[in-house]
């Protein structure tokens, strides 16, 4: 059974479905998956994300997380500790001034025993590589470090899934790299389900599955290789493709026979090498 499942999910901020922010969304996310959600501004990504842990409730349809319905009040706390959420602005999600005290916030809310909280806080900080900073002032950290603290704050709840809403949008390239590395590690080593909302194509290319949203609807839902093959379609809704894919797209326009399903730099190099060698043979 799917870990997160939306069934005919529609949502309007003012309950009037004639201008819905989400229209009839049906997606299933399995445990341990790494899913990226793409879409231009206002396409409903954040709105969808907030449905995945019961911050927003569907106007129509149903969302279940690990078998629990998000509309069920009784299950809400359990849903929130199962699926944690990281937001775009690193400053506005840190509650306490000192790093370790902030990481302890969620387990404190859950009424966990102080000794167990200590253990979880230390483990979580270790996982995101912030142990050295546990007694630091949170506001002195860099953006990337703040986001890692925010992730640690969720890990202390021992979630099965982490939803990240454009976590790198306000970071410098170094911070982006740190955060992406942490996210990938959580997925591969801790088997935590990752839902990553991003508008960086290279980040989406690292996922195992990409969902493209447009005007509140799911437009594509497939592997990154397949999704980025539709470069023309993505461009028509105002999205970019990874630079490697872009290059292939342009080469194709010049009638050079290259595969479109090229999303990483390495693949790109291999393909280019091949066609250059072929050229030499035919010359």
């Amino acid at each position: 059974m799917a870990f997160i499942k939306t069934e005919n999910l529609s949502f309007a901020y003012d309950d009037d479905l004639s201008h819905a922010a989400l229209k009839n969304i049906n997606i299933e996310i399995n445990e341990g998956e790494f899913v990226a959600i793409l879409g231009h501004n206002g396409s409903g990504k954040s709105t969808l994300a907030k449905h995945l842990n019961g911050i927003l409730l569907p106007t129509e349809g149903r969302v279940t997380v690990d078998g629990m319905d998000t509309a069920d009040d009784e299950a809400l706390i359990k849903i929130r500790r199962t699926a944690g959420m990281v937001f775009q602005n690193p400053d506005n999600q840190i509650v306490a001034s000192i790093v370790e005290e902030d990481v302890a916030f969620a387990p404190e809310n859950l009424g966990i025993d102080p000794l167990e909280i200590r253990k979880r806080v230390d483990e979580a900080l270790e996982t995101v590589g912030m142990t050295k900073y546990k007694n630091h002032s949170a506001h002195m950290l860099s953006g990337g470090q703040k986001q890692r603290v925010a992730i640690a704050g969720l890990l202390a709840m021992k979630p099965k899934c982490i939803i990240l809403d454009e976590p790198t949008a306000m970071l410098d390239p170094k911070g982006r790299k740190e955060v992406m590395k942490t996210i990938k590690k959580l997925n591969s080593e801790e088997n935590i389900t990752i839902v990553l909302i991003t508008h960086y194509m290279d980040e989406a290319a690292k996922a195992k599955r990409v969902i493209v949203m447009n005007k509140g609807e799911v437009m594509l839902d497939d592997t990154p290789h397949y999704v980025f093959q539709n470069a023309g379609l993505l461009k028509s809704i105002g999205l970019d493709v990874p630079q490697s894919t872009e290059l292939m797209f342009e080469l194709r326009k010049q009638d050079i026979k290259v595969p479109l399903a090229v999303i990483s730099d390495d693949e790109c190099v291999t393909v280019l090498k091949e066609i250059l060698e072929e050229d030499r043979v035919t010359d």
Partner: peptide, 19 residues
């Protein structure tokens, strides 16, 4: 911040423990 606190299961002082 309020949303982030909700996401981290904040529900007032009742039943809270401290690190």
């Amino acid at each position: 911040l309020a949303t982030a606190m909700e996401c981290r299961c904040y529900a007032g002082g009742k039943g809270r423990t401290r690190l």
